[in-house]
Amino acid sequence: MIIEGKKEVLEVLRMPEAQFEAEVAPEAAKLRDERKDGSLLAMAMLGYDNICKNQCLYCGMRASNSGVKRYRLAPEDVIASARMASENGFHHIFLVSGEDPKYGFDNLLHIVEAIHGMGMHQSLACGEYSLEQYRELKSAGAEEYVMKFEMSDEETFNRLNPSTNFKKRMSAIESVKASGMRLASGNIVGFPGQGLDQLAEDILLMKKLDISWAPVIPYMPAQNTPLAAEGGVGDLLTNRKEIALLRLMMPDVNITAQQPGKDLRNGLADPEGNRDAILSGANVLFCDLLPDALAKNFRVIDNRNVSGTEHLYQIAELTGLALSF
């Protein structure tokens, strides 16, 4: 199947489920197996700081959400967690945080340099910085930076992200690319008010940006956030259609397979949700390094539930694919 533009993207997004399951998902999964050697990429993940200055209307860690117990891991604790992950066979770590001005950029550089010395691949998602700072992170050993545009419609972005704006976000995205790091970026699927036309534009923007990883998930309402009052969970089938489209449009891209299922209490470790995403072309799974007491407060969304390695092996067995650490 060739997806050349918005017309073809919308055809898939509007496609009946049975047709998608029979024609599109199998082709995307086959292409994933060809390009990823029939394996799933397992990343260690560490949310090292849940303090955030921003007021994004959809994020559970927004600054005014008093229901979240805040924490900030010391650099040496972050490094120790990465070392433990390395000793347990992980070769790739994803460091993610809220936008915390008081963490200290020098501390982040120290962490990246130390982990680089362990020989681990590093992906970071730590917020908007300057081009020079992104270049410093690249020099320290960071290889990939996650800077999501969230939604490609400027007016919608500015409403839902009042602490920044669309032009500033896109400038940060271009700075990541200019730094020499790979760009990971993507959208939120099915947030209240999003239509298929807007979703198609999101997908085309990911293609235009030539991303290395699409960390996309459906919208999941977070407690004590304004957007949660506007509507419920994004459509899971539509999310799977986006995964398949991204695989067909960008055969080598990494795509998050850690996806919810119908029972949201299972969070992103839902076996059915993970399996369905993989059957649609996704390939990336996570193991959260945070202890449970802290993990429950890294609440961009509620009920992430991706701690430990047991679920990684469960999903590998369920799908018949190997794990690549």
Rank of each mutant, 00 (worst) to 15 (best):
K208R: 15
E242M: 13
D252I: 02
P226E: 03
V253F: 04
V176K: 07
R247P: 11
I217Y: 04
M220R: 15
G180L: 12
P192T: 01
I173M: 12
Q198D: 13
Q198T: 10
S175F: 06
P260A: 03
N224W: 04
L245P: 12
P251N: 11
P192W: 09
P226A: 01
V189N: 14
M206P: 00
Q258V: 11
V253A: 08
L264C: 11
K177T: 13
R265K: 14
T225R: 00
S175E: 14
D263K: 12
L227I: 00
F191W: 06
P221D: 05
G195E: 13
G231A: 02
S179T: 04
G232R: 10
S179H: 03
G180D: 10
E201W: 08
I173D: 12
K241G: 00
D202R: 12
L209Q: 13
L236C: 05
G231D: 08
Q194L: 03
G234A: 03
K177V: 11
L248S: 02
M249G: 04
G261F: 09
V216D: 14
E230G: 02
L237W: 04
I255D: 09
N239V: 00
K177R: 15
I217F: 03
E201T: 13
S212R: 09
D197T: 11
A214E: 08
G186R: 09
M181D: 03
M181G: 00
L199N: 07
I211F: 01
A244D: 04
G234C: 06
L248W: 01
M181H: 06
V176L: 11
L264Y: 12
S185T: 11
A257D: 10
K207N: 13
L248E: 03
V216C: 09
F191R: 07
M206C: 15
L245D: 12
G232D: 13
P221V: 02
Q223E: 11
N254Q: 12
G193L: 08
Y219F: 14
I243D: 04
G193W: 09
L199M: 07
E230R: 10
L227R: 04
P218Q: 10
S212Y: 12
K207M: 07
V189R: 05
Q259L: 13
T225P: 00
E201C: 09
T256I: 10
Y219N: 03
P215W: 09
M250I: 14
I243F: 06
I188W: 06
Q223M: 08
P251R: 08
G267T: 04
A184K: 04
G234I: 01
E201G: 07
T238A: 01
P226S: 06
G232P: 12
K207W: 07
M249V: 06
S175V: 00
K208L: 08
K207V: 14
L209F: 10
V216E: 08
V176P: 05
A229E: 14
G180P: 11
P218T: 05
A222S: 15
N266Q: 15
I203D: 05
K208Y: 02
K208H: 12
